[in-house]
Design a protein around this nucleic acid. Structure first.
Length: 875
DNA sequence: AATCCAACGTA
DNA sequence: CGTACGTTGGATTA
């Protein structure tokens, strides 16, 4: 509200202000990690938020042009015809900006055939008529004509979009010497070059104002044009039609037919989650609190549209009887406290029952829990593990909304039932307010969580394609079961081995550091990129390297390049220091992760990747060093546990290349894998036209890099850089390669094209990954999507195959009553702890299950190793 | 104290 | 200008 007590209506021209912001802010500082430019969006929102805060409008809307075409271009086809195409970097920002505004609860208005300014004019006029104080914010000078006592124009100054000049009638008179309604007359005479509307030659603002003051109105002036003397008078008489045309075109329409009236534009509560999501996508951080502050409302807790049934407390026997008579799918939620079952809730769509976990309850429910009765559990792995600790193996798991949500949209960060309730039901999951001692709002109970899970699942099933549903049922759920056991088992790690190695590395790092300090004559933190830059590029005056966001890169590749071009002892020491401290860090994180049982229990995140792979956290056991001899000492600390005989490692060789051979059907590549010859030797022989025996190591290295690069969408540039060869040679290598293995290139091309049509890629087993950016006008975005889309079916199919092998092995070991157990999965490798006397049987199971996990047109080769520790077993 | 960034480990 | 991940310490920001 303004001082006058009137409601305030703020209407903004989104396009013109975002465009100004686009040029005002450096593109380089405003783009996301995947290349989306955001400077226009950021600049606009920043200004908009300031406006909201300063003006506190009660009603608000942002208008956009629909296209360059409007009724004006039909009246005068040259209208704005001189405008160059707006840059591609800008175009993509408008839809994103509209998404932001939408999330903020701000109406986004467009109208086919009209410009944003006509929308502003209509709303301003209506608003003033209906008693609003109106604020118009636009970067188009024509909107000056809208200014009245009730309508103020906020116009960006040349300094930038954040400085807005207020045009009241007085301010307009002061600046132009005439009241606002005369402004279009001035503009018609002067012309507007940006709209491609030529005016009267030699007539500028001064002359126009003088004439209009003299004759009162434009019509009068044009009528009596012959009274004006001199060259300008002649010019005026020659351009009368131009002036009339200009005046016709620069008049803004105040009566556009419109679905909104000013009253409909009352400020709405913003959708905090949606704002968070879109800002996260755009990588806006500082803007978020500013938006929340400007809006002034803490995010309102939205009342749930549907209220969950009140849970019925049940005695163990009653609960057992109740679940036993259910034939339909029952949802189940178990609270987990320190890895143990807490309280159990079960639900159908109409009924919710609960009971605290107890031995009695466990006994009463065991048959049902372990049986095949269909059950639905959100985030099942955690609960499956808790039940296993309590001696119960959950059976009949048919659905997990968290897995389903990930399969549907692998890119989304939905990590909890609350996220899913928001996304699929558009409701808020009731949560107890943790900031209050006696919470005002009750959180959902376990049974109610189960009830919500059921409803989320219902919504998800509606959009779950059959192929994706089968991935859930046939791959993910069985995998979940295996992962639960792997996490519970953990892997034995020797603190002694790690500790000894860490001490050695520490001593070495210190010695190296001292030596390095001596060379540069001072002590710096070698782990600080900032201090290193000072030493390298200023003190030692080494040539500047690749730029990063914060300065110049000092990564290993850059240092190695520097060492070659400008050898300096400090560089070598720095690299050695990095290596030693890195290994120490890894050891440290592993040591912290060793539990009371002497084993590391990692957590596999089943919904952690875009492609279908697993990821591993706390600690990550999928990136334990292996590349050089020394670092393998860390692997050697992973040992067979007490009571077991040995470790078994099994890995797929070249699984991604094999999948590519299968998917492309390339006869040469298929022959390569069926020949039994070393792959790279075979490919090298074909590419270089020699006998396999005559393939030199250099040749092998080249085709190997090429083969692996293919799977990632490598370019000639990238290949040349990796192999340190000329780009022309890399290009030639690619040509020769594709001349022999052409079907591979055809496949890669067509698979991206298909993905562009479908909007997603699909693995051999039907797992999908959406790729909206394949049709983006933004080249960086599009090409990034193309490479990812090329890789997704290959990496994803490999992930599917490994998952299948994993749960089959897990199942076989259990069903045959073996004590051996799978411990780790590292994408294409499994580590199994083999019980005494079980080696032969286990090795056979692993070999067969991995080899038969998929039926491809090439064999799946499995390498098996045995040893007392992970390093030994790798040989 | 929380968050970002460069760097680097793996498949 | 090579896909997919997670963790770290230092720097930066709140």
């Amino acid at each position: 509200m303004t001082d006058s007590g009137k409601p305030t209506l703020l209407v903004v021209d989104g396009h013109s202000l975002a465009y100004r912001a686009f040029f005002a802010l450096p593109v380089d500082n405003f783009s996301t990690k995947d290349g989306q430019h955001t400077n226009g969006i950021y600049g606009f929102l920043s200004m908009f938020v300031n406006l909201l805060k300063a003006e506190k409008p009660t009603h608000v809307a942002v208008a956009f042009d629909t296209s360059r075409q409007s009724f004006r271009t039909r009246v005068y086809e040259e209208y704005k015809a001189n405008r160059s195409e707006s840059p591609a970097e800008f175009k993509g920002q408008i839809p994103l900006l509209q998404e932001c505004l939408d999330a903020m609860g701000v109406p986004v208005l467009t109208k086919e055939d009209f410009e944003a300014d006509d929308i502003l004019a209509t709303l301003a006029t209506q608003g003033a008529d209906r008693g609003f104080q109106v604020l118009v914010c636009s970067g188009d000078r024509d909107t000056i004509q809208l200014v009245t006592d009730d309508v103020t124009l906020l116009y960006p100054s040349v300094q930038g979009v954040s400085q807005l000049k207020r045009y009241t009638p007085e301010a307009v008179v002061e600046k132009y010497g005439l009241p606002p309604h005369n402004y279009p007359d001035i503009a018609a005479l002067v012309g507007e070059t940006s709209d491609n509307l030529p005016g009267v030659p030699k007539v500028g603002e001064k002359t126009a104002v003088k004439w209009l003051t003299q004759y009162g109105t434009l019509d009068e002036l044009l009528e009596r044009a012959d009274e004006i003397k001199g060259v300008v008078g002649g010019n005026l008489r020659e351009h009368l039609d131009d002036v009339r045309r200009n005046r016709q075109l620069n008049a803004l329409l105040r009566d556009v037919e419109f679905e909104y009236e000013p009253e409909d534009l009352a400020v709405r509560p913003l959708d905090t989650q949606a704002v968070r999501d879109i800002f996260a996508r755009l990588e806006f951080r500082t803007l978020l609190p500013r938006v929340f502050e400007a809006v002034g409302v803490e995010p309102e807790p939205v009342e749930p549209d549907v209220v969950a049934p009140t849970p019925v407390q049940a005695a163990p026997a009653d609960l057992a009887a109740w679940v036993a008579q259910r034939s339909e799918e029952t949802a189940l939620t178990l609270t987990v406290v320190d890895g143990r079952p807490g309280r159990l809730g079960v639900a159908t769509l109409t009924d919710v029952r609960e009971a605290d976990w107890s031995d009695d309850l466990a006994a009463a429910l065991r048959d049902w829990l372990e049986g095949d009765a269909p059950k639905l559990v959100t985030d099942a792995k955690v609960q499956v593990k808790a039940l296993r600790r309590a001696g119960i193996r959950l059976g009949g798991l048919v659905f997990d909304p968290l897995l389903a949500g990930w399969l549907l949209r692998p890119s989304l960060p939905d990590k909890s039932l609350a996220d899913l309730v928001d996304r699929y039901l558009d409701e808020k999951l009731p949560v107890a307010d943790p900031t209050q001692l006696v919470p005002e709002t009750e959180g959902a109970t376990p049974g109610q969580l189960a009830w919500f899970s059921l409803r989320v699942a219902e919504a998800q099933r509606g959009e779950l394609p059959e192929s994706v549903a089968s991935v859930l049922t046939d791959i993910e759920l069985p995998t979940l079961d295996a992962l639960a056991d792997m996490e519970l088992a953990g892997v034995a790690v020797s603190k002694e081995k790690l500790g000894g190695f860490s001490a050695e590395l520490g001593a070495r790092a210190d010695a190296i550091a001292q030596e390095a300090y001596a060379i540069i004559g001072k002590e710096v933190n070698l782990g600080s990129p900032k201090q290193l830059q000072e030493v390298l590029f200023e003190q030692l005056e080494l040539p500047k390297t690749r730029k990063t966001k914060t300065g110049y890169s000092t990564d290993a590749a850059v240092l190695a390049d520097l060492q070659e071009s400008n050898p300096h002892p400090f560089l070598g020491l720095l690299l050695q220091h990095r290596e030693a401290t890195k290994l120490r860090q890894i050891i440290e994180s592993l040591t912290v992760g060793i539990a009371g049982d002497g084993r590391i229990h990692t957590t596999y995140v089943q919904t952690g990747s875009q492609t279908g792979r697993l990821s591993s956290t706390d600690p990550n056991l999928q990136n334990i060093p292996i590349r050089n001899e020394e670092s393998r000492r860390i692997r050697a600390a992973f040992e067979v546990g007490a009571g077991y005989e040995t470790l078994l490692t099994a890995d797929y060789s070249q699984i991604e290349m094999r999948i590519m051979a299968h998917l492309s059907g390339d006869p040469g590549l298929i022959e390569a894998f069926n020949s039994g010859e070393d792959l790279h030797r075979f490919v090298g022989a074909r590419v270089f036209g020699v006998e396999p025996a005559d393939v030199t190591p250099a040749m092998r290295t080249k085709v190997k890099a090429m083969s692996y690069g293919l799977v990632y969408g490598l370019s000639a540039f990238g290949l040349s850089k990796q192999l340190r060869i000329e780009q022309s040679e890399a290009k030639q290598l690619m040509l020769e390669y594709f001349a022999r293995f052409g079907a591979v290139r055809d496949y890669l091309r067509s698979s991206v094209e298909q993905a562009r049509i479908d909007g997603y890629t699909e693995t051999i087993f039907g797992r999908r990954r959406p790729f909206p950016d394949l049709t983006s006008p933004n080249r960086v975005l599009r090409e990034n999507a193309e490479r990812a889309a090329l890789n997704a079916p290959i990496q994803g199919s490999a992930a599917d195959i490994m998952k299948i092998a994993l749960f089959e092995i897990h199942g076989d070991l259990a069903s045959r009553g073996l004590s051996s157990r799978v411990l780790l999965q590292i994408h294409d490798e499994l580590v199994v702890e083999v019980a005494t006397g079980e080696w032969d049987e286990v090795a056979e199971i692993v070999r067969v299950r991995m080899g038969d996990a998929a039926d491809l047109s090439v064999p799946l080769d499995v390498q098996i190793g045995r040893g007392g520790d992970w390093d030994e077993a790798a040989h």
